[in-house]
């Protein structure tokens, strides 16, 4: 039967059509989000070496640096993922705002979690945080104690830099708040990935929510532990 085909417009480029569609963009946000979650977990596991003698984290940092061109590929890859995540999210948000031009006089919610309702805000603050974080510890352009010292083996003493960085209470509080937001962002984001890529079923929704919240808390507690331990002088 010649039904939809008759009325359909000329065929769009499949990739472009996917990229332009709501669900396509969501897929991109979900997959990039998953990549970023992977990075954040790895990042934390690496940084937890701060609780070991300084040699560990300094060796780890040196190894990363020594990756050379590969490090740059990873960095650009991460940047690409990050940009895709942010750009598509903002585009979707604009689209959604246009779809609801007039707000309700009375707003009430039944199911939406706080985390899900604040994804854009938490995301934008995290964006600001990441810029700061890069300036702070990667580009090291923010004046910080012990930022450029070398360890006994002549390597960049990352251990001293981190300890020095978090001895500033203002910086530490900003980090803590940001980690709280990261926790919220991921507690919604992680289970959301499964919904978006079509793996969340009725039966899996409960376990996925638990896992998602657990992951959020793990990242918060892990990162906060570093900051707090330094701030309170447990790690010196």
């Amino acid at each position: 039967m010649s039904t939809a085909a008759a009325a359909a417009p000329s065929r769009p480029n499949p990739l472009a059509a996917f990229y332009a569609s709501t669900i396509g963009k969501k897929w991109i946000v979900a997959l990039t989000g998953l990549g970023l979650i992977g990075f954040v977990i790895g990042h934390l596991l690496g940084n937890l070496q701060i609780f070991l003698p300084p040699d560990y984290i300094n060796t780890y940092a040196k190894k990363l640096k020594d990756l050379g061109p590969l490090l740059w590929i990873i960095r650009f890859g991460l940047l690409g993922i990050f940009v895709l995540h942010v750009v598509n999210t903002i585009q979707l948000r604009q689209r959604s705002a246009a779809a609801r031009p007039e707000a309700y006089a009375v707003e009430r919610k039944k199911a939406a979690s706080k985390a899900s309702l604040t994804m854009i805000i938490s995301g934008l603050i995290l964006l600001a945080f990441i810029v700061f974080h890069l300036l702070h510890f990667t580009l090291t352009v923010i004046p910080t104690k012990d930022i450029h010292v070398l360890d006994p083996l002549g390597r960049h003493d990352v251990y001293r830099m981190v300890v020095g960085g978090f001895q500033n209470p203002l910086v530490s509080i900003f980090y803590l708040i940001s980690m709280g937001l990261l926790c919220m962002h991921i507690s919604h984001g992680f289970q959301s990935v499964f919904q978006t890529i079509g793996l969340r079923t009725r039966r899996l929704s409960g376990p996925l929510n638990l896992l998602s919240n657990g992951l959020g808390w793990f990242l918060f507690l892990g990162n906060a532990a570093i900051v707090l331990a330094i701030l309170f002088g447990l790690v010196k």
Partner: peptide, 27 residues
């Protein structure tokens, strides 16, 4: 607009249709 997986729709649906169908559609 696009779905941000808040599941308000499922809560509002008078026939209580599950958001699991949205996941299936995404796939």
């Amino acid at each position: 607009g696009n779905c941000t997986n808040q599941y308000e729709c499922e809560a509002a649906c008078p026939k209580e249709i599950s958001v699991a169908y949205i996941a299936r559609m995404n796939r």
